[in-house]
């Protein structure tokens, strides 16, 4: 679509190279679930003769490895708990419901960013650079930053092919609000014809509007705490608040119907903490998963200025640990497809 629009708007010369065009539309690493590539980025790469670049190929292997870890260890482990809690939410206390939403947040992140890493890594093996799709979104300090870091290829696509043509932020305030709502609603609708996705889109628009009104939507463009080991208190609280808002949105995204999502949220805010960590009928236990998620957050935090954790000192040790993690902590007994294969 972007090719057709770009050619129509004369931003791109129509190609006469059938092989390059065919390669562009059928490029297998990103064909199933993205990242959504533009002709302007991908097509020129097929025109040029490519030479094998060892460092790029190895970087690709690292991305594949890290993507695999995110999928089989993080996403699939979290999926078991999230599925169990969401399916029995009526009998769960507030603490378990909060954990269910957090697990789903890590499930969808591990699943989709893991897939994107594998796609980008595979592409690098062929000398093709795909655009980055995730940039540590859960370290965002506000919702605007979150959307600059989550599913980047989709949000920039909507920005360039929908938001800006509608007038973007250069129209009157009222029209700008309308444009913001339109892109978030369309983004929700893109995920499926279900009201839950529409509400998820609207909710994110409502999160975004206050930042937009007060011109604070482009406050956090850099990497959080760049060059520092830990965030300051304000940054930490901002990240925590943003994450909390995001997981409330994920409840709508995950729930089967809007009424279930509302009921889930009502129970979540009933502050019923009886029974603490509730028993789930799966042979895994909450404390271990929390430790795993915490370790994952630490690794991601330390890698936030890079694309993956395989850099600097202890490279071989990190590789061995990751492979061991994939072997021993991965979920293989209940294989699940990538979530975004359905969208």
């Amino acid at each position: 679509m972007s090719y057709t629009i770009d050619v129509y708007k004369r931003k791109l010369e129509p190609t006469t190279d059938f092989i390059a065009f065919s390669s562009f539309v059928s490029f297998f690493p990103q064909l199933v679930a993205g990242p959504i590539e533009r002709a302007s980025n991908l097509l020129p790469q097929f025109y040029k003769k490519r030479f094998f670049d060892k460092s790029k190929a190895i970087d690709g292997l690292y991305l594949i490895l890290w993507g695999l870890f995110k999928k089989v260890v993080i996403a699939d482990s979290c999926a078991r708990y999230a599925n169990e809690i969401f399916s029995k939410y009526e009998s769960m206390n507030s603490f378990s419901l909060l954990m269910g939403a957090i697990y789903f947040a890590f499930q969808i992140y591990g699943d989709f960013s893991g897939y994107s890493d594998i796609a980008i890594g595979t592409s690098k093996l062929f000398g093709i650079d795909l655009k980055r799709n995730f940039a540590f979104p859960y370290f965002s300090r506000d919702i605007a930053e979150f959307w600059r870091r989550w599913h980047i290829s989709l949000s920039t696509w909507f920005r360039d092919y929908l938001y800006i043509p509608l007038g973007g932020s250069k129209a009157s305030k009222l029209l700008s609000f309308r444009n913001v709502f339109i892109i978030f609603i369309v983004s929700g609708f893109w995920h499926g014809a279900n009201w839950t996705f529409i509400i998820w889109g609207i909710l994110n628009a409502l999160y975004f509007i206050p930042l937009f009104i007060t011109n604070r939507n482009r406050n956090n463009l850099d990497i959080v705490s760049k060059g520092k080991t830990l965030p300051n208190f304000h940054e930490f609280m901002s990240m925590l608040t943003t994450f909390f808002l995001v997981i409330i949105g994920w409840i709508f995204f995950r729930a089967e119907t809007v009424s279930i999502a509302i009921d889930y949220i009502k129970k979540l805010f009933s502050f019923n903490f009886e029974n603490g960590l509730q028993y789930l009928s799966i042979n895994r236990y909450t404390p271990e998963l929390l430790i795993l998620i915490l370790c994952f957050i630490i690794v991601e935090w330390n890698s936030r200025e890079n694309e993956h954790p395989f850099f600097g000192k202890w490279l071989n040790f990190k590789l061995i640990l990751t492979i061991l993690g994939i072997i021993t902590l991965g979920v293989y007994s209940n294989v699940t497809d990538f979530i975004y294969f359905q969208f």
Partner: peptide
């Protein structure tokens, strides 16, 4: 390219060795 294949081979060997070790 030869160096890359050597690297892939060593990575593959590492995976096999870790599988045997874990088992």
């Amino acid at each position: 390219m030869k160096q890359f294949f050597k690297y892939v081979f060593s990575l593959f060997s590492l995976i096999i060795a870790l599988l045997y070790l874990s088992d």
